[in-house]
Amino acid sequence: ILEEAISVVMSGKMSVSKAQSIYGIPHSTLEYKVKERLGTLK
């Protein structure tokens, strides 16, 4: 489920907030994982 949510957000089909409510994943977790994948994590 997490992988799917990350893919959807990264493809631009859904915002982090929308994915959070649909997949039930905490906003901070989703945002962290997306940034980690994009290489923008500081």
Rank of each mutant, 00 (worst) to 15 (best):
A5E: 05
V34M: 09
A19D: 05
T29C: 06
M14W: 02
K42G: 15
I6W: 00
G24P: 04
E31L: 08
A5K: 05
T29R: 08
I25Y: 02
M14A: 06
V9E: 01
S15D: 14
L2S: 06
L2R: 05
T40G: 13
K18Y: 04
E36I: 05
E36G: 03
M14R: 02
S17L: 11
Y23P: 05
Y23I: 02
A19Q: 01
V34E: 05
G12V: 00
K13L: 07
I22G: 05
V16K: 08
E36L: 03
E36S: 06
M10W: 01
G39T: 11
V34A: 06
Y23Q: 03
I25C: 04
G24T: 03
M14Q: 05
E3L: 01
V9M: 02
V9F: 00
V16L: 13
A5S: 03
T40M: 12
A19G: 03
K18G: 07
L2Y: 08
H27I: 14
M10R: 04
H27S: 15
V34H: 05
K35I: 04
P26C: 05
S28Y: 09
S11E: 13
L41H: 10
Q20D: 00
L2E: 10
M14D: 02
M14G: 02
Q20G: 15
K33L: 11
S28G: 13
L41N: 09
M10L: 13
L41Y: 13
K13F: 03
P26H: 09
H27M: 14
L38E: 15
S21E: 15
I25P: 04
E31R: 06
E3S: 04
S15M: 01
K42S: 14
L38V: 11
Y32E: 15
L41S: 13
T29F: 05
L2K: 07
T40I: 08
P26F: 01
Y23A: 05
L30W: 01
V9T: 03
Y32L: 14
V8K: 15
S15H: 03
G12K: 07
K42E: 15
G24M: 06
I1M: 13
K13V: 06
V16M: 06
S7V: 06
E4M: 03
E36F: 01
I22A: 14
M14E: 06
K35R: 11
E3Y: 03
L2I: 12
G12S: 02
I6N: 05
S11Q: 15
Y32G: 15
M10I: 10
V8D: 10
T29Y: 09
M10G: 03
S21P: 04
S7C: 08
Y23M: 04
Y32I: 12
L41W: 10
I6P: 00
S21M: 11
Y32A: 15
T40Q: 14
Q20C: 10
L41K: 13
G24C: 07
M14V: 07
A5T: 02
I22T: 15
P26D: 12
E3W: 02
L30D: 05
S21F: 08
G24W: 00
K35Y: 03
I22F: 14
I25K: 03
L30K: 03
G39F: 08
L2N: 05
S17I: 15
E31C: 10
A5L: 02
R37S: 07
G12N: 14
K35W: 05
V9H: 01
I1Q: 12
E31W: 06
K18S: 09
E4P: 00
Y23W: 02
H27Y: 09
S17T: 12
E4I: 04
V16H: 03
K35H: 09
T29G: 04
L41M: 13
S21L: 10
L41F: 11
G24S: 08
V34G: 05
V34Q: 05
I22P: 04
S11I: 06
E31Q: 07
A5H: 00
I25R: 01
V16I: 12
K18N: 10
Y23T: 06
H27L: 13
S15K: 03
V9W: 01
V16R: 03
K18F: 01
E4N: 02
E31N: 08
S11Y: 04
G39V: 09
I1R: 14
I6M: 04
K13M: 05
K18H: 09
I22V: 14
S21D: 13
A19P: 00
K35M: 08
T29W: 07
S11F: 05
E36P: 02
H27V: 14
S7F: 04
V34C: 10
S17G: 13
S11L: 08
